[in-house]
């Protein structure tokens, strides 16, 4: 009995994945941005024994990214490499280490496993719409922010008059991804009725079939979905939280943190940051935001 149940669960997982792929395929077909070209340093110099020197020496790096967020970190069905703003940031960091984009190993991280992956060294760094929080900084290193976004609301076109901001979400069924800060924000602060799903595309499906009233998460992600169904979906209201995306690294590696900050700062100045944004999130029509000021590496 036990083995039979295990077998069924495994099959179930495969089926879920297949179904998930199908949903993603249906939702986001045909978006094939290649991203910007990234400069790769030749033989960069680093202090002996530093983390940077190790990566440069090895000539490769493993980066944990999201695979299910169009415009941020997204692996299209059948594609070999993911696309998105986080991916471009990863290429910029790798480039500064003298590592070419094709030598980067992209590993999918989901919201739940980002800290364990960093702690156990499964990935070298995490760039996965990774909001900087105090709790997370207790267990991993987070530098940045390289991008500041905020939570917004996605509703059906016909509801855009009735739901105009988070205040209208009281008692409204509001969908977001399991374990995301977005969901607790609207539940704790605005009394929304939470509906958790595994992926944002599942949430959008439930919004379109009328089962939920709103989908909430970082504005950038919602804009990507609204752009795919402009007649049906609408992003409403101002942003009502601040999500500061940072790069996760092994806790305590201050030297590496300084390097990451310098790299991000350099990308602000030479225009590669803006280029990365315009070729990914910028395509959904948002203006390139101001470059956020970086936290210092204590």
């Amino acid at each position: 009995m036990a083995t039979r149940i295990a077998g069924r669960t495994r099959r179930a997982a495969v089926a879920a994945m297949a179904a998930g792929c199908a949903l993603v395929l249906a939702a986001c077909g045909g978006d094939d941005s290649e991203g910007a070209n990234v400069e790769v340093e030749e033989n960069p110099e680093f202090p002996e024994g530093s983390t940077m020197a190790e990566f440069a020496e090895a000539g490769q790096i493993e980066i944990g990214v999201k695979f299910d967020q169009p415009g941020v970190g997204f692996m299209a069905p059948g594609a070999d490499v993911p696309t998105g703003f986080d991916i471009e940031m990863g290429k910029i960091v790798a480039g500064a280490l003298g590592i070419a984009p094709e030598d980067i190993t992209w590993t999918e991280t989901v919201s739940d496993n980002r800290e364990p992956f960093l702690q156990q060294g499964t990935v070298d760094i995490v760039i996965a719409s990774y909001s900087i929080t105090e709790e997370r900084r207790q267990v991993v290193g987070q530098t940045g922010p390289y991008y500041v976004t905020g939570q917004q609301i996605l509703v059906r076109e016909e509801d855009k008059e009735t739901i105009t901001g988070p205040e209208d979400l009281a008692q409204a069924k509001t969908c977001s991804v399991t374990g995301s800060t977005s969901l607790s924000n609207v539940v704790d602060d605005y009394g929304a009725e939470p509906v958790p799903f595994d992926t944002y595309s599942d949430c959008v499906t439930q919004l379109q079939n009328g089962s939920v009233d709103a989908v909430t998460t970082d504005g950038a992600i919602l804009l990507g979905y609204a752009a795919q169904a402009p007649d049906e979906l609408e992003v409403v209201g101002e942003t009502f939280s601040e999500e500061r995306y940072g790069i996760g690294y092994q806790k305590g590696d201050t030297e590496f943190c300084e390097f990451l900050n310098e790299t991000i700062q350099a990308s602000y100045e030479d225009g590669s940051w803006a280029e990365a944004f315009e070729s990914t999130l910028g395509e959904s029509g948002v203006e390139t935001p101001e470059q956020p000021e970086l936290d210092s590496c204590q």
Binding site: S111, E135, V139, T178, S180
Partner: peptide, 12 residues
């Protein structure tokens, strides 16, 4: 679901 939520809010 609460487990995922707890992991997210209290990774320590």
């Amino acid at each position: 679901y609460q487990l995922s939520d707890l992991i997210e809010d209290f990774p320590g």
